[in-house]
Design a protein around this nucleic acid. Structure first.
Lengths: 242, 242
DNA sequence: CGGTTTTCATTTGTCTTACAATTAAATGTC
DNA sequence: GACATTTAATTGTAAGACAAATGAAAACCG
């Protein structure tokens, strides 16, 4: 635990960085116990509240977890895909909402990334993935589904599509892109007609994946990207006027 | 700021969640000032150290920033691409290193995502992106470059390639994938021969991007993916034996 | 001796109080 | 009016105390 990598900032930041580096560089391994707060305070020559602030920073990034009681303490946490997902979605959502990212840019990024998956998905999909996709398509066809429900189902469909590529790293990366788009998508009012078009395209994608036909799946996805973009831009334009 | 969404966890976690929700849901806007620590302590009926722990959690996620002095305080932070990048790279790196992700899986994900960019890059690249790519290729051709230097240059080359697509959301997403791979790539010892092959492929990609030839660029990238995979698997296999 | 209960030491969680450091605004001075 | 000084607000840090949780060890009991 080296000290003082950034002497400008406050103590808890520096301590957090120092411990983080130890974890990232592998000097501390998963499930290894950190010294107690009192001991850390002594080692870094700071008070316990300051150490605690540092530990909370690390906990916020899921780098450590803490347990109370005797033989408790702070432990290096194995970062699970689920935790990483959660963090990525929060970050990506904020990034989009705070930086005035245009619908077109977000849409393009999302479908570009998703396009990277469909070829793999066509090659590797299993019955389960296909069933999940079909189930969402069925939901989307129900006319009593709310717009929010339709969007949620859309996300679920695309997640199933991504998972069909059977690469957890890809799934993790795409989760951020797909889910972060949801707030933007929720702004769209889906008419019966647009829902029909989307369901038709989803069906084409699912059929192509089932047939292990990567080219057709890619083409349908691209068509969907174009259609989504058109819908979204209409909404954004209308939103500007008043 | 609603209270008590998760009554199980400790106070600072709950308070952090409550404020985070207010930010994510847009009830607090960028650069808006949070109440002072003393006031927050009063509102949540907790002590100031507890409030501070909550604020440190949020600061660790770049959701807020703090300024000292009169009229200072905690402010909702505009999440910049740079900050989001940094977080994503840390998360992705830890995810790979802690979860025994195979070289093949990581490699596949990386090149699949990157493939999503080349077509756009071919269409949109500007002189600057091309110059950056060429500069890295030139570096990579120098025989006195260390293996770490070669890897770093490789990352820089691919970052330039991704940036050529001129979609900041894509760049953000890809940063995680490309940079998180670097520790794995650093394990590879690049022989003069393999360096030559990689430089040749990089050159083919740059040439194709310059010629706005997406198909050739994609093909070269796929070849590079295959070659990298072969190199990596050789290393991983050799590492298993002893 | 075996199982159960109790005690106990350790550690995190929280509160209280206090002071130092910083900073912008208000005030005073020339 | 320009510049120096004071002041009030706010975060940063410290020290000490107690509560709560928890597993280990000790004590107890059958």
């Amino acid at each position: 635990m080296k000290t003082d990598p950034t002497p400008r900032r406050d103590l808890s930041t520096r301590i957090a960085h120092s411990i983080r580096d130890a974890i990232v560089e592998g000097r501390m391994i998963v499930d290894e116990r950190l010294p107690s707060e009192a001991e850390l305070a002594e080692r870094f020559a700071v008070s316990r509240p300051t150490v605690r602030e540092a530990l909370k920073r690390l906990a916020a990034q899921s780098l450590i977890r803490t347990e109370r009681g005797a033989f408790g303490g702070a432990f290096v946490n194995r970062l699970s895909y689920a935790e990483a997902h959660g963090q990525q979605i929060t970050t990506a959502t904020l990034l989009l909402s705070m930086n005035a990212v245009s619908f077109a840019t977000a849409c393009e990024a999302r479908y570009a990334l998703e396009g990277a998956c469909v070829a793999l998905a066509a090659a590797r999909r299993e019955a389960g993935h296909l069933a999940a996709m079909r189930a969402e398509i069925a939901r989307q066809a129900r006319p009593d589904l709310s717009d929010e429900g339709f969007c949620a189902s859309d996300v679920a469909f695309h997640r199933a599509l991504v998972n069909a590529a059977r690469n957890p790293v890809l799934s993790y990366q795409l989760a951020g892109a797909v889910e972060a788009m949801q707030p933007l998508m929720n702004m769209i009012t889906f008419t019966a007609r647009s829902r029909g078009a989307i369901v038709a395209l989803h069906t084409r994608i699912a059929d192509a994946i089932e047939a292990r036909d990567a080219a057709t799946a890619t083409a349908a996805l691209e068509e969907l990207a174009g259609y989504t973009l058109t819908l979204g831009q209409g909404v954004m334009a209308a939103r500007k006027k008043p």
